[in-house]
Amino acid sequence: MSTLVLDGGLSTHLETLGADLRDELWSARLLLEDPALIRRVHTDYFAAGADVAITASYQASIPGFMKRGLDLEQAVRLIARSVELAAQARDEAGGGLVAASVGPYGAYLANGAEYTGDYDLDEDGLVTWHRPRWEILVEAGADLMAVETIPSYPEARALARVLEETPDVKAWISFSCRDGEHINDGTPIREAAALFTGNPQVVAVGANCTAPRHIPGLIESLKGGLPIVVYPNSGETWDPAAHRWQGLTDPVEYGQAAKEWQQAGAAMVGGCCRTTPEHIAQIRAHVS
Rank of each mutant, 00 (worst) to 15 (best):
G49C: 03
A50P: 03
L70P: 01
A50I: 05
A110W: 03
G125E: 11
N111F: 08
A53E: 04
A100C: 10
L126N: 02
I79Y: 01
M66W: 00
G106F: 06
V98Y: 06
T116G: 14
R81D: 15
V83E: 04
G69C: 05
T55W: 01
A47C: 11
Q59P: 04
T55E: 01
Y45I: 04
L72R: 15
F65V: 03
R77Q: 13
T55A: 03
D120L: 13
F46T: 09
L109K: 15
S82I: 10
G94C: 11
N111G: 14
G95M: 04
A56P: 10
G125Y: 08
L109R: 15
A110V: 05
D122I: 13
A93R: 07
T55R: 04
Y115P: 02
E92L: 15
D44H: 05
D124V: 12
S82H: 08
A86K: 02
P63Y: 08
A110C: 10
A80P: 00
I79L: 08
I54A: 12
Y58S: 05
A53I: 06
D124K: 14
I79D: 03
R68M: 01
H42N: 00
Y108W: 13
G96N: 07
Q88E: 15
A86L: 04
G125S: 13
K67H: 14
F65N: 00
S57N: 09
L85E: 12
D122K: 12
A50E: 00
E92V: 12
G94A: 11
A48E: 11
D44T: 07
Q88W: 15
V52S: 11
A86W: 03
A53R: 07
R81I: 14
D44A: 12
H42M: 04
T43V: 12
I54W: 06
Y105R: 09
P104Y: 10
Q74H: 03
A48W: 11
A60R: 03
Y115T: 04
I62V: 13
A87Q: 15
A100M: 06
V98H: 09
M66V: 12
G94Q: 10
L126S: 08
A93P: 11
G49K: 04
V98F: 05
Q88L: 15
D44Q: 11
G125R: 06
G117R: 03
A60L: 09
L109D: 06
D118W: 10
A113G: 13
T116I: 09
E84W: 13
Y119W: 14
F46V: 10
L72E: 15
A99S: 11
D122A: 13
Y119Q: 13
A99Q: 04
G106W: 02
D44V: 01
V76F: 00
R68F: 00
D44Y: 07
P63M: 09
V83P: 02
L78A: 15
A60Y: 05
L85C: 05
A60P: 08
D51N: 14
A47E: 14
Q59D: 05
G95C: 11
D44S: 08
